[in-house]
């Protein structure tokens, strides 16, 4: 069993990569996937801390995160479909009608 810092380090790296995905990619679907990656890195941190402190709460949180992620994906993908229906595009840089 490795020290817990290994897992949290990996979690940081995955989180940063996910964030980079959100910031750099223009495809709404890939941005969405990057968000899922970030969620997973957080889940990894939760699980590793749960193991470290030997408490069940961390794992329960992950359970909820997965459930919420499922709901989020359902709604998020529906939104993307709806945007595509009106814009015929899922390039987030083409969607700037909220410009002030």
């Amino acid at each position: 069993m490795l020290p817990i810092e290994y897992y949290t380090g990996l979690s940081v790296i995955l989180f940063t990569l996910g964030a980079l995905g959100v910031l750099i990619r223009r495809n709404a679907l890939i941005i969405f996937m990057s968000i899922e990656l970030m969620l997973n890195s957080a889940n990894l941190a939760f699980v590793s801390f749960a193991r470290s402190y030997e408490g069940m709460s961390g794992q329960i949180f992950v359970f909820f995160v997965i459930a919420v992620a499922a709901a989020e994906v359902a709604v998020g993908l529906a939104l993307i479909v709806a945007i595509f229906h009106t814009k015929r595009n899922i390039d987030v840089d083409q969607i700037n009608s909220m410009k002030g």
Binding site: V22, L23, R26, N96, S97, M98, G100
Partner: peptide
């Protein structure tokens, strides 16, 4: 001035959050 911050690009907002 502040309005120019609101670019309408969602990635800019994400960058700000980051």
């Amino acid at each position: 001035v502040l309005r120019s911050v609101q670019t309408g690009f969602v990635r800019n907002y994400a960058l700000s959050i980051f």
